[in-house]
């Protein structure tokens, strides 16, 4: 199998190498990819949508269908992880571990034992021992708000600089995952519960699809943002620009929520009790 695979792969590589000699040169402005539809996008984006970042305009306006269904794919991936992994917590774990904060002692409480109530003195810790590292916890606590602010900037400023819903959403999700890694899963779940991530994921897709439907109701085509002009009270060109921001916000919400949701389910093997 290994030899067969190697031969197949070498043959394919040789074939592709041979074909690559006929491919257009690197940086060739007259290559097929750069000649058909892309000059239209570059030359007309500004007058059509008044969005300088062509990538954002093509993503959310000219090719809105593609992005709508990519968002739906991401949401379904989150759902798939949920249905595959999630175990509802009926059975209590064998033993729980608590750290007594003033003394630093660790308590092991067997099944059926009395669980300490006062959360100011006792903190639950994972059964796989997690080091009590002040430096990592505090550094991440300081850094996380700035990462989140940067994520919001990336989403909101996607019209004028590199950025948009996907990038900003991933950065925001990464900030929450960083918080979960540096502290623990339960504390993160108190900040952003699973229900909230599922809700945000679906709301993001609904915002995107709803904008498209709203255009349809206002007399334009599906995802043709010129129809939003009367609702937003601006000219059709600005309406396209503003609608792109609405749509990108939806994408950002969905991507953030789904990244966090997938992380919750994968890191705790579906129990969402103990994890990284």
């Amino acid at each position: 199998m290994r030899l067969l695979g190697f031969i197949t792969v070498v043959l394919l590589g040789g074939l592709l190498f041979h074909l690559s000699l006929d491919f257009p040169d690197l940086g060739d402005a007259s290559s097929p990819a750069a000649t058909h539809v892309s000059p239209y996008y570059i030359e007309h984006t500004m007058e059509d949508t008044s969005v300088p970042n062509i990538v954002t305009a093509v993503l959310a306006d000219y090719r809105g269908y593609d992005t709508l269904f990519e968002t739906a794919v991401i949401f379904s991936a989150g759902l798939a992880c949920f249905f595959l992994m999630r175990i509802s917590e009926r059975t209590a774990p064998k033993a729980r571990f608590y750290r007594h904060l003033p003394t630093g002692l660790t308590l092991r409480i067997e099944k059926g034992g009395k669980i300490p109530e006062d959360t100011r003195e006792f903190e639950r810790i994972d059964s796989v021992w997690v080091p009590y590292d002040v430096i990592i916890t505090m550094t991440c606590r300081l850094v996380v708000p700035f990462i989140q602010l940067f994520a919001l900037y990336v989403i909101a400023h996607g019209h004028h600089s590199p950025g948009g819903g996907f990038q900003g959403g991933v950065i925001f999700g990464a900030a929450i995952i960083l918080y979960a890694i540096s502290n623990n899963l339960r504390r993160t779940l108190r900040r952003m519960s699973e229900r909230m991530s599922a809700l945000f994921g679906s709301v993001g897709v609904i915002i995107y699809g709803g904008t498209g439907m709203l255009c349809l109701l206002l007399g334009a085509g599906f995802l043709d943002y010129r129809g939003m002009a009367s609702l937003l009270g601006v000219d059709p060109v600005s309406a396209r620009s503003y609608s792109i921001l609405i749509v990108e916000t939806g994408v950002g919400l969905a991507v953030t929520a789904v990244m966090v949701w997938i992380y919750y389910n994968l890191s705790s093997a579906g129990k969402q009790d103990e994890g990284l």
Partner: peptide, 13 residues
């Protein structure tokens, strides 16, 4: 810009 748009979504997916 077109390959960038296509890959932007492909990376997240």
């Amino acid at each position: 810009p077109l390959p960038h748009v296509l890959m932007l979504t492909a990376i997240v997916v």
